[in-house]
Design a protein around this nucleic acid. Sequence first.
DNA 1: GTGAAAGCGCTAACAC
DNA 2: GTGTTAGCGCTTTCAC
Lengths: 333, 333
Amino acid sequence: MPATIRDVARLAGVSPSTVSRALSMPGVVNPTTRARVMAAADSLGYAPNKAARGLITGRTGNIGLVVPDLANPFFPSVVKGVQARAGESDVAVFLADSDEDATAEIGLVRALAKQVDGMILCSPRSSDQELIGLAQETNVVLINRLVEGVPAVTFDNEEGMRLAIDHLVALGHRRIAWVGGPKASWSSKHRIIGLYSAAHDHGVELVPVGSFQPTYDGGMAAADQAVATRATAVVAYNDLVAIGLLSRLHARGISVPDDLSVVGIDDIAMSRMAHPALTTVRLPKQKAGRLAVELLLGLLDDPDPGSISLRGTLHGELMVRESTGVAPDPARP
Amino acid sequence: MPATIRDVARLAGVSPSTVSRALSMPGVVNPTTRARVMAAADSLGYAPNKAARGLITGRTGNIGLVVPDLANPFFPSVVKGVQARAGESDVAVFLADSDEDATAEIGLVRALAKQVDGMILCSPRSSDQELIGLAQETNVVLINRLVEGVPAVTFDNEEGMRLAIDHLVALGHRRIAWVGGPKASWSSKHRIIGLYSAAHDHGVELVPVGSFQPTYDGGMAAADQAVATRATAVVAYNDLVAIGLLSRLHARGISVPDDLSVVGIDDIAMSRMAHPALTTVRLPKQKAGRLAVELLLGLLDDPDPGSISLRGTLHGELMVRESTGVAPDPARP
DNA sequence: GTGAAAGCGCTAACAC
DNA sequence: GTGTTAGCGCTTTCAC
């Protein structure tokens, strides 16, 4: 049985309230008593029971984190960032994987909501309406999604896509294919906007190639259509798709980057390990996790939504690797 | 403010205890009252406060899970398994990432211990002594580690290595290199035992090639030494190492599997996507997570350690892919 | 600066 | 079968 506040009080010869104060409001207690309490506390290995404290303060010291699929390498990075930042503030993290299911997602949030001070929803699958509803019931911070009135950490997708297009245009590409991800995805929409805007500014052509699963298999499925566009470069919805593309292109004997350049988005660990190594727009995933925790913690300390920043926007960075090269000479057969 | 048990009691016209009973001991309450309570409960959207319940029952309905590094693709799979099984029993999961730090690991466990019914430690970095200590203070289930008296889920490493060796021997390989992982690792020890035993039984030679980081870079670092052994096949500590190997071999112009066969262990998602696709021993990672939860739950229901099985051993499965082929003709120059 | 008392939301005896 | 009482470990008035 772990030691309780009473055990400490008895050992230190003070009342439980004094122990409580010594631990959570240092300034207000006599330094001598405080020292005695501290000594007693750690001689007993005492640590306060968060649940009991939460019952009275209304703060549990825990947060919840919901991700759509841990098997997608994007998310573990975000989780790591959340963990790291939460740990620094001595906050524990409940993790839930919704398995891409919007209904499950809402359920998980509801179930967890009672035991946490707030929740971080990463790339939520739920509708704006549902998210707004949740945000009313509990403190919510979104990652990778913008919903009216809900605090969020997002990546600047428009800018990221511009980075990719600038790079390809500089290499001489004039006809660029876009292998799209899930149609409903918030990121998808914004990436497309950035892509078209950048392509327009450069006066180059952007050829959309449908909508695919944001997975390796999605990329495999898209490859032949991408080739058929006769574009000299392809931007993929994410790295997983790009790697699937690489694989199918290799199987077809199409050389990357000699025949076709490929750019991904995310910079998951696997991208560096691909053949050829994948040029991609790195998204600061861990940082997003950290920032989300910070927003959430800020929200808790000061629930007045006006006085703190509710938004964090993170910037991508182009990682040039071997999957992109100069556009093939159009004069070639 | 969420509804409390009293709100429900008032609305249903019964006492709080009746509500409590109606919810957690259905059989013991009058069906009519029960119905009334249920109606009241969900009209208020009532859900019991787990923390308050835990305070009195001593059971929180939560478990903790500590992994050494979520960025290693092995672990997210285990986490998914834990999540899935825990969810089925309506148990929430605290996740902590120790960042490969044994000290942090112990700290995380201690911090979490108060708020959970038990902990699952996946591939723990701590010493046997420390783990035994923890197991005395709280319910612990280990994954990927065997310590006297502590419940655990492990993979049959010996058998897995035999699978790999059998496969290579059947392809004609007679000299096989082993690229080892961290020396202190429990898995490492058992893999080596299996490897030598299988090699001995087949009368083939096993050549150890030092000890490397269990990462892609570790594999890159090991490749040249592996080649220098003049073995015709390499078994790597894990898939990440094997993929690093593949990469460096490719850079050196050594063809896999024509010049050298490579076998990994784990079957992480990336292995299928490698070039050539990696032959590997699949470890049922999700299953390990599920099983660990089951052992833990069993432990809670029946703390008598004698009456339930404290051990689960999972079996690997050989996935033959393109990175292995027949041994090159030794007569060749 | 410190102690006593009350109570957070819930369940577990114990009566009836 | 149901209500009453007490109390889990903690913090927080409110006295002193």
